[in-house]
Nucleic acid binder design. Structure first.
Lengths: 349, 349
DNA sequence: TTGTAAGCGTTATCAA
DNA sequence: TTGATAACGCTTACAA
């Protein structure tokens, strides 16, 4: 493989000149530059990234740490991260399925010297200490952290307010027996949604009852399983709020199998507004979360951190959410009138 | 940040010894090693990956190039890649949304020196030349390539045979007017599924007709849109085969909105068996593709290539698929009997 | 505008 | 079993 030295020799210049041509910051004689380009392409020269980052101590690479859970929502977040990073000439070194803190630390350590910053999506199981440890060497941006960490910018989802809005809407439709399929314990968004659900009930003068909350794990199967438990309750809940769309979809499937109609017998609401949601029968009422933007904002914060000399500018952001009323909750949204015309137009980016 | 030199100084040994301790291949006196470990942890020393790969010319990192399309299927593939890579102590440098060949080349070039091999998922728009160019410097494994490339191992999906099986099944149920929502032109899997559909018809003595094929793009919205075109056909198709599940789901949604019942008025079959498929109402008949295994196999082939001295061992694999009969096609699968018991058990890995 | 040469933080080859 | 020391391929003062 050709190195900078080969190019220099072929072009009849010094390696410094070749470097200058490739980095384009220092002035180089036009003819010389042309010769260098010619030599480089003749030799099919690709600069070595490792060597470059060794000298500059910059890698133009962002580390991305993902949780063990996957699916439509996270794909979108990653897409947001990847696209903005790419546009800003950053590469992404991804490492997925991190369950434990030790895991995260190991993965990060392995990235040492190859990343300029770390975007960490870890809605649960972060300890302040481990992140703080990483933070000493690298800028860290957290997505949906369970709590704020000193010196780390972060972006979160307005889970609490979204959940409250869901309950308020259901109450407005006349529901009083509102059940919930909760997300995994320890997950911030799951817990915030549960908290929002309870608050919403209280605000409507309804006492939240634990037996109306079924534990799920954000997967379709747990939503499906939740149906059985819920249908045993007397009086039977007239509405169920699932902490995410996947569980809502599993739930609807189970309700259908049990011979119940959504929304006539039971209203169902989800959270996230994954692409599928609008194509369900009935279309799923949910809380729209712009996952793509979530990823993008994280990268934006990282870029800020990287250009911040002293790393003192810490930003804590929250992504707003909006209730998307469709028919699974039994309301008749205005949009339903032209349902035959076409699906909701989806934004392409 | 502490370097190997700091550790050496603190431990009172040479840097060579520290390196030996950290790499664990050469024999080191036990006491010396202990001192080194102590010094390293006191200084919180992390070896620098860039420096390491500069000397060893190995990065223990796999480059992963993704297409512009995303969704449940691809997430699974990536999960497969990531998990096996991680288990084998490799990191993954991911770059998504590559539309053009130039794009791919640029991305790869940027990875030069930081990756040991490249896993490329590019079902369309690869030119042999560009891959060949990359191949000269790095092992390359292709996922679902449009055609075989010299010197590259690859894994593909048995799209053709899966599609044939779908048609055979529909014909077996008595359907003759079978339409198709095709995938994007240029995409191998889309084209193989279309070819399998036509072959299947021919084998049943039915002449394929172009007006029964509607162009889609693998997204839900295009499946939704296809419904309108299909419902205009006279005689109206009694069954529709969508080239993937997302489009099938969009299609079912549109059919429902048009007041048609699936499967009574129109049978629908998809492809991929994404998680959602079984939770549709009715549950979607589809062709199961083990996306996770697809990703894993690609990494396995890459590991083979990396341990292969001369890079001569090229393997071309195909992932088998299996028709998963549920109720959207109108058959009454045995499984439907216990539908009330629970969802199909999903494999966790 | 160009070249020389000193690093960057490792690993690996010799000797000791 | 250890230690010097020369790479690895690049960037960047500093000199010319």
């Amino acid at each position: 493989m050709a190195t900078i030295r080969d190019v220099a020799k072929t072009a009849g210049v010094s390696i410094a000149t070749v470097s200058r041509v490739f980095n384009g910051n220092t002035a180089v004689n036009e003819d010389t530059a042309l010769q260098v380009w010619a030599a480089a392409s003749a030799l099919d020269y690709w600069p070595n990234g490792a060597a470059r980052s060794l000298t500059t101590s910059r890698s133009n690479t962002l580390g991305v740490l993902l949780p063990d859970l996957f699916g439509d929502f996270f794909s979108e977040v990653i897409r947001g991260i990847d696209q903005l990073a790419k546009r800003e000439k950053y590469q992404t070194l991804v490492s997925g399925s991190h369950a434990s803190v030790e895991d995260v630390l190991t993965a990060t350590r392995a990235m040492r010297g190859r990343i300029d910053g770390l975007v960490m999506m870890a809605p649960d199981s972060i300890t302040v200490e481990s992140v703080a440890k990483i933070r000493r060497r690298l800028p860290v941006v957290l997505i949906s952290p369970p709590f704020a960490v000193d010196g780390c910018s972060s972006v979160s989802v307005a889970s609490f307010s979204g959940a409250r809005a869901v309950v308020a809407h259901l109450v407005g439709l006349g529901h009083r027996e509102i059940a919930m399929v909760a997300g995994p314990a320890g997950n911030v968004d799951a817990e915030e949604r549960l908290r929002g659900y309870r608050r919403g009930l209280l605000e409507a003068g309804i006492q939240p009852r634990d037996e109306l909350v079924v534990q799920g794990d954000f997967r379709e199967s747990s939503g499906y399983a939740a149906a059985a438990a819920l249908l045993d309750r007397r009086p039977r809940p007239t509405a169920v709020f699932a902490a995410n769309d996947c569980m809502a979809i599993g739930l609807m499937s189970a309700l259908g199998n049990a011979g119940l109609s959504v929304p006539n017998d039971v209203a169902v609401v989800g959270f996230d507004n994954i692409t599928m949601a609008q194509y369900m029968r009935p279309p799923l009422t949910t809380v729209h979360v712009d996952a793509y933007a979530l990823g993008q904002k994280a990268v934006r914060l990282m870029l800020d951190a990287l250009s911040d000399p002293e790393g003192e500018k810490v930003t804590v952001q929250t992504i707003d959410v909006v209730l998307k009323v469709r028919s699974s909750c039994g309301a008749r949204p205005a949009a339903a009138a032209n349902a035959l015309t076409g699906p909701e137009t989806s934004q392409q980016r």
